[in-house]
Amino acid sequence: MATSRSQESPGGSGTGAIELRNVTKRFRTPDGGAYTALRDLDLTVAPGEFCAVVGPTGCGKSTTLTLVAGLERATEGQVLVDDSPVRGIGSGIGFVFQTDAVLPWKTVLANVAAGPLFRGEARKDALAAARDWLRRVGLSGFENHHPHQLSGGMRKRVALAQSLINEPRILLMDEPFSALDVQTRSIMSDELLALWEVTRPSVVFVTHDLEEAIALADKVVVLTAGPATVKDVFTVDLPRPRTVQEIRFEPRFVELYQQIWESLRDEVQVAYARTATLAK
């Protein structure tokens, strides 16, 4: 059985699909100062690996995703994708945001076909691929609907199809299911795992839900209270394929939850104490 907590540095030696090496990220504040979101962060995600990232609110989880996506640049250190430095928005990376990124004036079919069309695929081929992905996410028959005619869970399915139709090597997900009710979240999590198994992109999944992180991931990375760095890396040695609702009852799931929460709890308390002090 694999160990639950990695004692090795999470930084890599050039073998990961994603590598952050000694990364620090600072932002300018309105008063002309600097705010440090990440400090000396090392993280590796292997090809085809599903990595969940947890940490206190405001610790820099989303910033980590924007660095990998090329939406922001590191102040110090290196961010690499497939051993090449990230210098801007690159191809082969999908990003599923917390809020829906669907275009409200386009139909469901047009939203999903937009990526292939933008890349220059023939319209006939793009629409055929879009219909196939809508079938995979259970939205056949809704091709001509507009986003406002769909439920929240259905819009999330559209967002998944939008990303996965492009066959990304890397899929970045920023709390994509946080706005959904508990039952819909479980359904969407199962659908995500089934779709991920098809093409096996490297996934970095940011979440505040520790149960969600364990149920989905191959490993869970715990970030410290900001400025964030990697505190612990836990291997999730639960068998695949998984059903999210059922895997939660496994004794090993409960054991992992207790171990990871012990690491995460201290950081949540630190972040809360800081917030309480600022509020006085």
Rank of each mutant, 00 (worst) to 15 (best):
L256V: 15
R119G: 03
K280Q: 10
F142W: 14
R248G: 01
V79L: 06
P227Q: 06
G115L: 06
L150N: 12
R252H: 09
F50C: 07
F27V: 00
R73F: 01
D266K: 09
F205S: 01
P241N: 02
P241Q: 00
D40A: 11
V233S: 13
G226W: 11
W196N: 06
P251R: 06
Q245V: 05
R26W: 09
G60H: 00
W261Q: 14
W133A: 03
G32C: 06
R157Y: 05
V222G: 07
E49T: 12
A101M: 04
R252P: 05
G55P: 02
P227H: 10
K61A: 01
G88Y: 01
G16L: 13
I187M: 13
K61W: 11
Q149A: 09
V137Q: 12
L127F: 15
V54A: 02
L71D: 02
G90A: 11
P116R: 06
D125W: 00
P176Q: 04
G92L: 03
K231L: 11
G141D: 08
L223R: 01
S178K: 09
T66F: 05
A2H: 07
A114P: 00
T57I: 07
T44I: 03
D100L: 12
K156Y: 01
P241H: 01
P176R: 08
R123E: 15
A215F: 13
T44C: 13
T64K: 01
A215T: 12
A273S: 15
E143R: 06
R274L: 10
I260T: 07
G92V: 03
P10H: 04
V23E: 02
V270H: 12
F97N: 01
Q258N: 14
V81G: 01
